[in-house]
Design a protein around this nucleic acid. Structure first.
Lengths: 217, 217
DNA sequence: GTCGTTAAATTAACAGTGTCAAGTAAATTT
DNA sequence: AAATTTACTTGACACTGTTAATTTAACGAC
């Protein structure tokens, strides 16, 4: 009930309060099932007050997306320290999948929803920043493997390679997220599906794939 | 305005009238943006009359799903005639992708949406019927390749192999459908992404992948 | 042929949604 | 002390999926 002019820091604080409340609800209740009134109630504000901080519901969503993209990149950051570029690539795939499956609803928002084609201009995340941009992280590692001469000789387009790896891992994760409950299919263990996809990608893309230790098991 | 007792055939006719109207709207306007009133208007009925033929909006959706699943299986059927099992497998992937990308909104409903875990008991599509069940078609072809001894020796679980192939193709298609508009990524040509994924799957799963003609060029 | 009965479809209404226009109250500025 | 600015709330609008009550038309029995 007490309105008073706020500093920019206080405004930002309230913004993240809203974002956090909204995120919790989105993640626990599912994407479309959460209302502005509900978000507001959770932080003891009225529904309309959110509109003083975000243009509309989609803007809230986009803000969540921004922080989630950062969270993903941040959770992958330590992997980039690894020595061998091929191991780095595999670990990146693994880390990506772990994020996707630990936060399936976040992942839905980020990579499976239909709205919001995310635009570098409208985002706070810095494109091509290795700390913030997960796609750039992948591209960098793919490039490292390429420089090391480990990819099959006919593969010379780093973006294409990166996108294929992404598609493979994303395929396993997104199918799991949207179809795992489906009785129609006799699903194998998720871990096995992921592992086979990793092996297939490595073998399909690398020159000397059979020498890679991780595939022996 | 004229109510009269209808034969079962007439009821069915109206059901498909509703389904068709709903499908058109879903496909052109996107999944969540279509209202019951809109569907009804399109066929000159009142909104509530739909509820005499379907329990709720989701039931309409599920019915659309059923017919779309049949359409997919039907569009893949001719491929099963091909001689060589490996060629058959590749053609199946290609045909699946073509369906997905020709009808992206149908595909969304079928494999990317969050609701509706589809249950053999609640569906009119017959599970494990080669005419109707696309997953069974895939599994059958995978099994043929397995019987022919073409998979790597350590791969002995047909469901796992099928699901990995599905995940790979689905990854390319779903990423295309939900992220192609995204300015963040410098997307390669869709056809190149699909082709590389096919090559990766073949090379990663088959014994003698380098002898496969389709990979040369 | 008329009379209930039954089915099909409609209208009216409800609770709930995102969002906007006005209004209110506290803090800052003048 | 008055005016202005800011933060927030209340009330309302148009719209959503869905249900209850109502109308309309066709059928079977006499």
């Amino acid at each position: 009930m007490p309105p008073k002019p706020k500093t920019e820091a206080e405004r930002q604080q309230l913004r993240t309060l809203i974002i956090d409340a909204a995120r919790t609800l989105f993640v626990t209740k599912g994407i479309e099932a959460v209302t502005m009134r509900e978000i507001a109630k959770r932080i003891d504000y009225s529904a309309t007050s959110i509109y003083h901080h975000f243009a509309d519901k989609e803007a809230v969503l986009r803000a969540i997306l921004d922080t989630d993209m950062l969270a993903l990149a941040s959770s992958l950051r330590r992997i980039l320290q690894m020595q061998d570029p091929v191991e780095r690539l595999q670990a990146l795939g693994q880390g990506y999948a772990e994020f996707a499956l630990a936060y399936p609803n976040h992942y839905r928002l980020m990579f499976m929803a239909d709205r919001i084609p995310c635009d570098p201009d409208k985002s706070n995340v810095q494109q091509n920043n290795a700390e913030q941009d997960a796609y750039f992280q992948l591209k960098t590692v793919v490039n490292d493997v390429y420089i090391a001469g480990r990819f099959r000789s006919e593969l010379d387009h780093v973006d294409l390679i990166a996108q294929t790896i992404w598609a493979g891992i994303h395929g396993v994760c997104s199918l799991q997220i949207s179809m795992a409950e489906d009785k129609w299919v006799n699903w194998s263990l998720l871990s096995e599906r992921l592992q086979l996809m990793q092996a297939v990608l490595i073998r399909g893309l690398l020159k000397d794939a059979n020498q890679i230790g991780a595939l022996k098991r």
